[in-house]
């Protein structure tokens, strides 16, 4: 079989995309390592400095990573197809402008392009599991069912942002042992945080209601309601 050496990255210009490569997400700088990784590429090599803030530990590690960078030309040497749209959105408190393909769903943008790995994929994008949910303008919705291009001007928060802001729901999930393998946990944290934002003192039924769209294969369900209750108490919501 033929090995291919073309240099295009799925119709997106890397440089165009990287115009805001220092974007901070969830307290972790989404350095261009991640962006580059997502885009592939193999012709020229540059050295880039990537800053990572480790949330929770409170320390900043700065490391330098050598990355490969692709020139943005298609196989026949023409400019890549345009069709990218520029959007401005606020991710975990950081406002940024990005060029996105309309075909990208928000999960793809956050997870694969920006390295927000708290946005998990459990059901393969059929809207059945809640693992990829994020808070958009105050509502917990599925990022796999949201087009990135339609998020222009919106405010987005995911589990990493919630953790970075020291919201008590994260600690409550840990101290209540409300997960086992942990793959679904970020989705539950997001759903619960959205609930507490709107209703700091929810009843058990309201908690169940808010978490009902999230699936957990380890079935840690029995401890999730108490976890949200704990967080609610810490927020001072409970009398």
């Amino acid at each position: 079989m033929t090995e291919k050496k073309n240099n295009n990255s799925g119709g997106i210009s890397r440089r165009e995309f990287l115009k805001d490569a220092g974007l901070l997400v969830g307290g972790s700088a989404i350095g261009s390592t991640v962006l580059l990784a997502a885009c592939g590429g193999d012709t020229e090599t540059v050295t880039e400095k990537v800053t990572t803030t480790v949330t929770g530990a409170g320390e900043t590690i700065t490391k330098t990573v050598t990355n490969e960078v692709t020139k943005t030309v298609t196989a026949d040497g023409t400019a890549p197809s345009t069709g990218l749209k520029e959007i401005t959105l606020t991710i975990n408190g950081h406002k940024t402008t990005l060029a996105v393909d309309p075909g990208w769903d928000l999960k793809h943008l956050l997870h694969d392009r920006l390295g927000c790995i708290g946005v998990k994929d459990m059901c393969g994008g059929v809207g059945a599991c809640g693992a990829c949910c994020v808070i958009i303008d105050g509502k917990a919705v599925l990022s796999c069912m949201t087009l990135a291009v339609e998020c222009d001007g919106k405010t987005i928060e995911n589990s990493e942002g919630i953790a970075a802001s020291n919201h008590p729901i994260v600690d409550a999930f840990i101290t209540n042992n409300a997960f086992q393998c942990g793959y679904c946990a970020p989705g539950f944290v997001v759903s619960a945080k959205a609930l507490l934002d709107q209703n700091p003192n929810p009843t058990d039924d309201e908690i169940i209601e808010a978490l009902k769209g999230n699936l957990c294969r380890c079935t840690s369900y029995p401890r999730m309601v108490p976890a949200v209750r704990t967080a609610s108490q810490q927020l001072g919501g409970s009398e």
């Binding site: 309309p102 994008g125 059929v126 809207g127 599925l142 796999c144 069912m145 949201t146 087009l147």
Partner: peptide, 25 residues
């Protein structure tokens, strides 16, 4: 496209004959 919760699933899983050339929000 309105809420996207049906449309994006159908596009992603390629269940229809045609792939849309345009999505109208």
């Amino acid at each position: 496209n309105a809420g996207g919760t049906d449309l994006l699933g159908t596009i992603r899983t390629a269940i229809l004959r045609d792939y849309p050339e345009m999505v109208v929000n």
